[in-house]
Write a protein that binds this DNA or RNA. Sequence first.
DNA 1: CTGTTAGCGCCTTCAC
DNA 2: GTGAAGGCGCTAACAG
Lengths: 342, 342
Amino acid sequence: MANGAITIEDVARLAGVSIATVSRTLHRPDIVSEKTRKRVEQAIEATGYTTNAMARSLRTMQTHVIVVLVPNIGNPFFSEILLGIEAVASAHGFNILIGNTDNKPEREKSFAAYVRGHQADGMLLLNGHVPLDNGGRLQGRPAALPPMVIMCERIPGLSLPTVRIDNEGAAHLATRHLIELGHRSIAHIKGPEENILTKDRLAGYRRALEEAGIPFEARLVAPGDFSIPSGQRGVERILDEGPRPTAVFCSNDEMAMGAIVALKQRGLSVPGDVSVVGFDDIQFAGSCDPPLTTIHQPRRHIGETAMALMVELLESGSVPEREVVIETELLQRGSSGPPRGP
Amino acid sequence: MANGAITIEDVARLAGVSIATVSRTLHRPDIVSEKTRKRVEQAIEATGYTTNAMARSLRTMQTHVIVVLVPNIGNPFFSEILLGIEAVASAHGFNILIGNTDNKPEREKSFAAYVRGHQADGMLLLNGHVPLDNGGRLQGRPAALPPMVIMCERIPGLSLPTVRIDNEGAAHLATRHLIELGHRSIAHIKGPEENILTKDRLAGYRRALEEAGIPFEARLVAPGDFSIPSGQRGVERILDEGPRPTAVFCSNDEMAMGAIVALKQRGLSVPGDVSVVGFDDIQFAGSCDPPLTTIHQPRRHIGETAMALMVELLESGSVPEREVVIETELLQRGSSGPPRGP
DNA sequence: CTGTTAGCGCCTTCAC
DNA sequence: GTGAAGGCGCTAACAG
């Protein structure tokens, strides 16, 4: 370390006081006399002293660091959530450590070890599940779960504070939008099979069909994995296997963009021949051609809410509300319209 | 902290050895006798002990944390760089702390304080400049610059290890591509005015024109700020102010996407009426309509290289090469083609 | 209001 | 091959 070890002691010596007084000047300036305070502040300024965070953490047993477990930073969906988290975090003197898990269990555990190793005070979970090891224990210890807040996905059977949107309801809204436009043959491209989001959104789609008296057709539901190419493949598969639907509701925006690409490649127009609706409202959704009709998730707000819960959890040891459900809305843009008349 | 304070002492007691032996078993198992080692390992397993990182850091004066200063996580351009950084970091036992600066000097300084406050060992700079305070000092201290590696942008007048691409050369390549297709009237949409990338890319554009004997026209250069809307505005401005160019080279992909949107809105076809070339090859570049011809930056590789330099800097105190220039390539896709014949 | 002191948990000489 | 002990820099009692 080139960084020349200016410690609290150097400041104390220069100011002609004890180290305790320096520490107090930093943390509770009000209980220090005006005169000494001035002197200490000058000494701090002169030396360029900064508190050694490691030492402080060791003493106080808290780091003011929160780990955010995210499956993939590269996914633009998460970026804005992180911004929201960060805003609230820094307002409360917390720092966030972004843990990119790539959906790899080792990586999740390695970040969980952060909390156990006292390198972080708590964890925000954007990855859809709690990083437990084989024994159902969090990295070794049984009962003692560290402060955690679950974001975006329900994790059944665990009573941790949760911030999420109503996926089923939003999918229902999106599908009903298409039905109200007059569509009767509506396809759906799903997310990854085990994913809880996939299930909830599929459920909303089915409920909307049911309520409108439209029979559910398995043929019109294609698998996907939330990627652009899987959206393309999904549409191709549906087009190849039977009569063309007049609309497609995709479980996220990337797949919707893929769907549009595939439709265009087949010479079909959007929304003229086929309407497309996505989910998430990612950054590019408004700039593609045509602009995507989609479910807007207030991502920043989601992040802010979750971090606020975490701060409360850390400060008071518990949170009042176990589950916060954030409102979503349907953003009607160019990719959806009435089906072509006969 | 619910997290029940299992310390090295608990392990030592259970194993019937001193804490020194436990510490040795952890760090240099070879110098501990087979028998005690086994016993200690069992005790560690049984207690679920994890080293307290704060205490270790305090003792060793290193955190194994590297701060990465990035202007905006939301920008998909940075995501993959981060992945590369992370890969090399975790391979060497380092963790990365992503510092989202939003281009705000306070935020940059606050992260710089991390290094000064011994919460991190070094800094990777993706933000284009060194976080110095008024006096030209890094957060207070004069000479002692902490380990830093500059990424993506040249920072003139500072001899820090740097990883970057040849922006001027790549812009030259992109422009020459258009010239070779037969274009003679090529517009350019710039990035933010002070930005060094903006300058380098503009320089490459001008050099290509010059080499082809095409006079530079100020009218054909529009300001921008790397955002989608600024690309739209740029095109509109150029279209409004004079005869239509047959091609546009944009200083990044977002602006190119905006440019395409604006061209379509005016009823112009891409590349039929106007060719568009971007820069960066962000994720969506291949999926827009038409797919964007652009300069591919090997972002993952850039990240890996920078982190490797940092590891070396930390371990040996210096790096052999002061500047590493990463190769780029032109990705020819659908948005560029020959100008429409007369 | 200020100084003295006891650790926080760990690593690392230094003895044995 | 192992144990005892000092101290990393700081905060929080406890005295004064």
